[in-house]
């Protein structure tokens, strides 16, 4: 009886592994198929290679740009701006949410302004940022942060307010100060929400920084896209897009890793 169950369990595990392998294989095939079709279609002129470039051209450009070092400069500039914008947006948003939680009066006063700022397309403020902060690094980072800060404030503040009042009752019965109840109840209880806003903010920071680079047009991957577009060098546009896709995915994965480290420990 026991042996039979063991065997059944082993079969079950094998089935799971097989399924997982099949999923990975299919995923990989789709990727390869995409690049092969892209290459073939442009080589046979089904698609205009001038507009759609081709994987081999992108690869060649990648190699030359690595050798002359310019790709590294552009990529690291953009990556640095994005990470900074992302961190600033999240941290400032969370701090402001904390202040709003602290002062119900302030939160009531600021409520309509937050609604306006939230509905406003932040990239439209780009020109004003550039005029105010100068056409460069600062404006771009500000754009990356601005785009995520308002939504972070709103979501995190609601998470703070949504914390079950009985947890507060527990800590207040021990005579906790407001500061103590914030740091030992409100903030840790909201970690899951904060982490999920991090995930959204990764994407938003990329949008802000790329648009910022479009506008400033000095360096970075966003600049490479705009420049490539203007001089009709679509190989350069494609190369930037592929690099952005890879880096954005990596950042998202890092946040997920952080999530597993922070949350998994206690839930369950």
């Amino acid at each position: 009886m026991n042996d039979k169950n063991k065997e059944l369990h082993q079969n079950y595990v094998k089935k799971l592994t097989r399924e997982k392998r099949l999923i990975r294989l299919t995923q990989l095939s789709i990727l390869i198929f995409f690049f092969v079709m892209w290459e073939v279609a442009t080589a046979r002129q089904w698609l205009d290679p001038l507009l759609f470039s081709s994987p081999s051209r992108v690869w060649d450009l990648f190699l030359t740009r690595i050798q002359d070092g310019s790709l590294f400069t552009h990529t690291s500039v953009t990556l640095f701006e994005t990470i900074l914008g992302f961190i600033l947006g999240t941290v400032i948003g969370t701090v402001v949410a904390g202040i709003l939680w602290w002062s119900p009066f302030l939160s009531k006063v600021l409520d309509p302004y937050l609604v306006i700022l939230n509905s406003m397309p932040k990239v439209a403020l780009g020109p004003i940022l550039i005029v105010g902060l100068g056409p460069g690094f600062t404006s771009i980072v500000a754009m990356g942060a601005l785009i995520s800060v308002v939504i972070t404030i709103i979501v995190v503040y609601n998470a703070f307010r949504g914390v079950d009042g009985n947890y507060l009752k527990v800590i207040n019965s021990f005579g906790a100060t407001k500061r103590q109840s914030f740091f030992s109840v409100i903030l840790p209880a909201s970690y899951p929400t904060i982490i999920s806003t991090l995930k959204v903010n990764v994407g938003l920071a990329w949008v802000g920084v790329i648009v910022g680079e479009f506008l400033v047009s000095k360096q970075g991957l966003g600049y490479m896209i705009v420049y490539g577009f203007q001089v009709f060098n679509f190989t350069m546009v494609m190369l930037s897009l592929i690099i952005i896709a890879i880096l954005a995915t990596c950042m998202y994965q890092l946040v997920e890793l952080l999530e597993r480290k922070l949350i998994h420990k206690h839930s369950n």
Partner: peptide
């Protein structure tokens, strides 16, 4: 105000799940 002299026990345990 709440004093250290009194202890409170609620309907549910409300243990902090992150501790």
């Amino acid at each position: 105000r709440p004093t250290p002299e009194t202890g409170y026990m609620l309907q549910q345990d409300y243990l902090f799940p992150w501790l």
